[in-house]
Design a protein around this nucleic acid. Sequence first.
DNA 1: GTCTATAACGGGATAGAC
DNA 2: GTCTATCCCGTTATAGAC
Lengths: 216, 216
Amino acid sequence: MPAPHLSRDDLLNRLHETFRRHGYEGASMSRLAAASGLGKASLYHHFPGGKDQMVEAVLEHVRARYEEDLFRPLETVHPPRQRLLSMLRTLAQDYDNGDRNCLPALLALTPERDRFTEAISALFSRWLDCMTQLLIDAGLARDIATRRAHDGVERIQGAIVLTRALGMPKPFVGLMADLPDQLLAGADRGNIWSSRPTRLPAAPAGFGQMHAARIA
Amino acid sequence: MPAPHLSRDDLLNRLHETFRRHGYEGASMSRLAAASGLGKASLYHHFPGGKDQMVEAVLEHVRARYEEDLFRPLETVHPPRQRLLSMLRTLAQDYDNGDRNCLPALLALTPERDRFTEAISALFSRWLDCMTQLLIDAGLARDIATRRAHDGVERIQGAIVLTRALGMPKPFVGLMADLPDQLLAGADRGNIWSSRPTRLPAAPAGFGQMHAARIA
DNA sequence: GTCTATAACGGGATAGAC
DNA sequence: GTCTATCCCGTTATAGAC
């Protein structure tokens, strides 16, 4: 269907990059054409509905990629920690350690949110559900797993903002390092996956220790 | 300097609302004119440099408001918890419980970041420093205070994303409820501010309990 | 399927009257 | 200080050749 020199997946990947860098309004047809290597008219051949249809297609494409690269690894039969690490690796790569942002998140912050509500909320819901299930598999109670999944996604999105705002990768990179232990804390006992990490990382000094006094 | 019927503060507030809703590219001169009640030419009278100068002025205006409404309450002589609650109240109001976003954060996610780097990073740095100092005042060690301040700002920004993405205020509202205890955990002893909250809130079931096993 | 050319519109920005 | 009118350019979108 696409140009002989460009598969539909490649086309959607390039459009995705443009939209997530510049946002909906900033991604002009000229930029999209330049990024895709096609003429503007050719883009309208593929997407008669214009930019809106492109975003819709890109979001569906992103959903499919997330499904394969992020969510499916969360649903394998490997030990929970291993599955989580796999997700975080993919995430760090896709977000370039917090320097590239998340298109659904960017869209959520502007009025375009209301035109793409379904795709955006469905993607985040699916993400949350997968992480929740992983944490349940790891041995956490459902309500705790749900909360931690929310906290995790929340912090990932916040880390992207902070990383780009401060111009340094520390927030995102630090979060990636801390998340496994924080999410799985207290979950590695009493279930069939008793595979603690080979080397025990240093305990994070942030949220990791809070409530210690009350609990003790 | 501004119109007889509109103070400069009101003008900047309206421009701020437009920029934070639509983003830099989405905030057209027409929209800015409509929102401010002025003609386009009048806006150029106030800001000969066009949209860039407007954003610069708006960011400075936001900084001044944050300084007064958010940061100054963090530096009073009141008990730490009380100062923190004051900040969170203001925050919840300004962000409309997560439904309105944060302009510096939105700018940070687009290429405009590189044109307004200084204003954006300075604002977040100042915010982080204030929170860190508050947590130190509350009795936490500097490195722990720094980490928690980062975590807090990070989660606030992530909660806005998640709230708008899911279309429900729960992430943001829940975070506002949990943050005081999470940030101040283990900090209310050993310093002069031994004012625990009048009623002890239920312990959060999320990050609050993580590492409990290891610590115990 | 892709291109060039072009229409119709809205964008940022300025001149000059009041 | 604000307005109306205008300029030029980029934008979305389409028509029609190849």
